[in-house]
């Protein structure tokens, strides 16, 4: 079977790198944890990978704004290499701080194409004004598309294996998704680029208590127009074993199959294996 290689990028303040490597490995990929300085030194470096993962953490202390300084660094030093990486159809995932980085360098949502590095959205301070760690329910938007046929959207690259509603933990202070304006938000929705929305346990209600940070349209995760670049605030790498669920001891917590966090990684890795 083809080996899927994943680069897990780290720098000062990255702190979910080990779990992200573990999740990728469990999903069948071969992860390599690489410091950004090594990537900047080497001319190539990115070519041999199929997946680029930006893990959670507080890169550069979230100083100025979360993800901003790393986004700026990647854009300055690695722009051309990232552009060729994504033009080859390779996959990118940014989790929490990684999502903040993707958004702030303009790789997401990329409504006019991710390669343009056009900043269209942001992730700002939660409406509560503080950091929050809790489990949330997420509506898997792409599973519902196609109405009766219950067929996944072609954009469901990372989420093809997920049920309609999943639960995952969030842990962030700056996760409020904001689009540049109403029009671009409409473009994002029309283009089916919203992948995950904070919801109630049934996946029907999105607002109030269920939206933990005040995100526009309860957006928890988005993808680029190809579906290959995914950014999300919740942490799939923290739910790759049922023991990680807060209520695995209760019968109401199903322990069949594999946990949704791992499924997400598997969907991406399987896609990479098939298409790259």
């Amino acid at each position: 079977m083809k080996k899927v290689k994943a680069l897990v990028l780290r720098t000062a303040g990255t702190n979910c790198d080990q779990e992200t490597c573990l999740a990728l490995r469990m999903a069948g990929a071969e992860p390599e944890l690489i410091h950004i300085n090594r990537l900047k030194e080497a001319k190539g470096g990115l070519n041999r990978f199929h997946i680029l993962a930006l893990p959670g953490g507080f890169t550069y202390g979230d100083d100025v704004a979360s993800g901003k300084i790393l986004a700026n660094e990647i854009k300055s030093a690695l722009k051309a290499r990232i552009r060729s990486f994504i033009s080859e159809g390779k996959l990118v995932i940014g989790i929490c701080n990684g999502f903040q980085v993707l958004v702030k360098m303009g790789l997401l949502p990329g409504t006019r194409g991710a390669g343009k590095f056009n900043v269209e959205s942001s992730l700002g301070l939660n409406d509560s004004g503080k950091f929050m760690a809790r489990w949330v329910h997420l509506k898997n938007v792409h599973s519902h598309l196609g109405g009766e046929r219950k067929k996944n959207s072609p954009l469901a690259v990372w989420t093809s294996g997920l049920p309609e509603v999943i639960s995952l933990p969030i842990a962030h202070a700056e996760g409020k998704f904001i689009m540049r304006d109403k029009d671009t938000l409409n473009v994002l929705e029309k283009g089916e680029q919203v992948v995950l929305r904070y919801s109630d346990p049934t996946g029907t209600m999105y607002d109030g208590h269920f939206n933990p940070n005040g995100s526009e349209n309860a957006v928890a995760g988005i993808c680029d127009p190809t579906g290959r670049i995914l950014g999300l605030m919740p942490h799939p790498e923290r739910y790759v074993s049922f023991l990680q669920h807060p209520n695995w001891r209760r019968k109401s917590c199903s322990q069949e199959g594999i946990p949704p966090g791992l499924r997400l990684f598997k969907s991406g890795v399987d896609f990479a294996r098939k298409h790259l």
Partner: peptide, 22 residues
């Protein structure tokens, strides 16, 4: 409790807040 990230490193198998309502 909720201001602290109690799940980073992925090893927390008994959370500080438990039950169906967490």
């Amino acid at each position: 409790i909720r201001q602290y990230d109690h799940e980073v490193q992925g090893g927390n198998v008994l959370k500080p807040l438990v039950g169906p309502g967490n």
